[in-house]
């Protein structure tokens, strides 16, 4: 009974260690992720502009979405700079 409990604790500890160690992303991985997010926000801004231009989005919402894209882009650029700096 006691041995079973010790085994269960060890398995749980191993799982936690594996999870935490897997979370430490390399700078390259972080930079790649930030670049993908940046491209995503740039594409969002383009699509919002196109949709607004053809009248598919009301002006009020197009402004909200453009603002969100701008904030997302700025955040991704900052993350990219942090990941690229030594």
């Amino acid at each position: 009974m006691r041995r079973g409990r010790v085994f269960a604790h060890r398995v749980a500890l191993l799982g936690a260690v594996a999870a935490v160690s897997a979370c430490g992303k390399s700078p390259e991985a972080r930079a790649k992720e930030a670049a993908a997010t940046l491209r995503s926000w740039q594409a969002t801004a383009r699509l919002v502009e196109e949709e607004h231009a053809r009248g598919a989005l009301p002006r009020e919402f197009a402004a909200q979405a453009a603002r969100a894209a701008e904030q997302g882009r700025a955040k991704a650029e900052q993350q990219l700079r942090q990941a690229s700096s030594p």
Binding site: S40, R46, L47, L57
Partner: peptide
């Protein structure tokens, strides 16, 4: 297809407006 991932709700209305 445009490489957009959903990070904010403001992106989701585009699913139907397009």
């Amino acid at each position: 297809v445009r490489g957009i991932q959903v990070d904010r709700y403001e992106q989701i209305p585009l699913l139907l407006s397009t």
